[in-house]
């Protein structure tokens, strides 16, 4: 019996850079080329200056935990063997309020603290799909 496939996104032209970046091991975030504002989720127009001149750029992958939840129930066959798992919102260090949805890995729920420093990693789920995930940052 083959394992259930992960839910695989069908990115549009506006977000393809995010997923191809993840496959390369790079966290890519859309950035306005006119005013420098980072934008996530990717959108057609800059939230600050309304320029259409937007490109995906690599970011540091460092951030802090804004919120999280541990789910104990799978709502899709792929996650049956993965529960419980942590879903989180991470605020990236590049810009206040620049948040990404992600999984939190290599940490037990009891040790998770809102505000903790986290660092991106990449998890390959299939040939087509690699997702950025975050783990507690290792002290420099």
């Amino acid at each position: 019996m083959s394992a259930p496939a992960p839910p695989t996104p069908a990115p549009g032209a506006i977000s393809e850079f995010f997923w191809s970046g993840a496959r390369r091991g790079q966290l890519m975030i859309q950035r306005c080329q006119a005013c420098g504002t980072y934008i996530h989720l990717p959108r057609p127009v800059c939230r600050a200056c309304h320029s259409f001149d937007l490109l995906g750029e690599p970011v540091s992958g460092r951030g802090s935990l804004y919120s999280f939840t541990e789910t104990h129930r799978p709502f899709h066959p792929f996650f049956v063997d993965r529960v419980p798992y942590l879903v989180a919102v991470v605020e990236l260090e590049e810009q206040a309020g620049l948040r990404v949805l992600t999984n939190l890995v290599r940490v037990a729920e009891a040790d998770v603290r809102i505000g903790m420093a986290v660092q991106v990693e990449f998890e390959r789920l299939s040939d087509d799909l690699t997702i950025p995930v975050f783990a507690p940052a290792v002290a420099a």
Binding site: P9, Y66, T69, T71, R82, V87, L125
Partner: peptide, 27 residues
């Protein structure tokens, strides 16, 4: 537009969205 960021990570039920807010509220 946001579906591609939710479902691959298992953020896939409404209660998780409210839970994410609730955790921040409690904190």
């Amino acid at each position: 537009g946001a579906a591609q960021y939710r479902y691959p990570i298992g953020y896939n039920a409404y209660l998780m969205y409210i839970a994410m807010w609730a955790q921040r509220y409690l904190y």
